[in-house]
Design a protein around this nucleic acid. Structure first.
Ligand code: ZN
Ligand code: ZN
Ligand code: ZN
Ligand code: ZN
Lengths: 176, 176
DNA sequence: TGTATGGTGTTATATCATAACATGTCAAGC
DNA sequence: GCTTGACATGTTATGATATAACACCATACA
């Protein structure tokens, strides 16, 4: 189902920036998700499944209302809670992440793996990359431990420039 | 101007969790801020100054509309942009931070020092502590560098339990 | 004395999120 | 079979957060 020719992520010239292997895109993730959830006694219902699909196909961060629009157009409910509930469910189960700086959601690119995700957000093109956040999580955990704080969930986001936009905006001004 | 007897932060039994030295509270920070800004050709105007004061006095994270209410009651403007502009100004100049998980703002506890702040947010009592985020910033920078991303600003927040609430909620159930 | 800049204020609107309640579905227990 | 409880989905209505666009007034300074 993943079509690189229409995938904004894949269309990016900076494959290194958004390094996702397509053996995991859409369908595969979906199957994986279903298995995982079943093991935990959870259900990937139609709305939830379709919501995840929409995020996977979009291959970028989407606002809840954008997702809702898609869902509504396909015969699901038309009201905000429909989208928010599905998105929150996916987030709780590690299948999607919330990007707080964008008030948006994105499909997890590494479902199943234990990860405290870190996101790199380009302020120009809004592309979001999920970076391995293990080292960051460790550092954060240590800082917390020092003051006796128990970490349960983390939000780590960096705003800046993706390689492509850095070229366009950077010191290379006189190229064109 | 800082009165520990009415300061929610100071009233906390977990001084270690919110370790702030009062030589820096309110007035001192304010003076420092003014100096710093002047050096950068920026002005700590009445609204901005009062906004910072409000955050410092509150000694906790406040929503923009809460701040606005205070400002309005004191003769400043009554409309959202008044608060948002002041808060954004303070944030841009390192005098306040935005806590995205809470949609709130808090005065910086370490103004002047270069720091990529990390916040520890108690999900029970909502107390926010600003932890030194240098190590975290480094880890994040490295992860970003690997994919050619240029970091400009970071958001690092941990949700969990402060020491006090961990005691109350934790495995120590049968104490009372 | 124009005129550019920046700060403050306004009105109006956009955007994001949740509370509260009604209905449907399905499986466990009687 | 029916009842009941758990959970999912849908609704209406409202709340909370944030910004666009414009008017007015200062100060700075050519
Ligand atoms: Zn792809
Ligand atoms: Zn970009
Ligand atoms: Zn204090
Ligand atoms: Zn607490």
């Amino acid at each position: 189902m993943h079509d690189p020719s229409t995938c904004p992520g894949c269309a990016q010239p900076d494959l290194a920036f958004a390094p996702h292997d397509h053996t995991r895109c859409a369908d595969d993730v979906l199957a994986l998700a279903e298995t995982q959830l079943a093991q935990g006694g959870q259900r990937l219902t139609p709305v939830r499944r379709r919501t995840l699909q929409i995020l996977l196909e979009a291959h970028r961060a989407m606002g809840a209302y954008d997702v809702l629009e898609r869902l509504a157009a396909e015969g699901f409910g038309h009201q905000p809670p429909v989208a928010y509930r599905a998105l929150e469910f996916l987030e709780e189960h590690g299948l999607a992440h919330r990007i707080r700086r964008l008030n948006a959601f994105t499909a997890c690119m590494h479902p199943g793996e234990i990860h405290a995700p870190a996101f790199l957000i380009c302020r120009v093109c809004n592309v979001v990359a999920e970076a391995p956040g293990v080292a960051i999580g460790l550092a954060l955990g240590q800082a917390a431990k020092k003051v006796g704080f128990t970490v349960e969930r983390t939000t780590v986001e960096a705003l800046g420039l993706c390689p492509a936009c850095a070229l366009a905006e950077g010191p290379v001004r006189g190229v064109a």
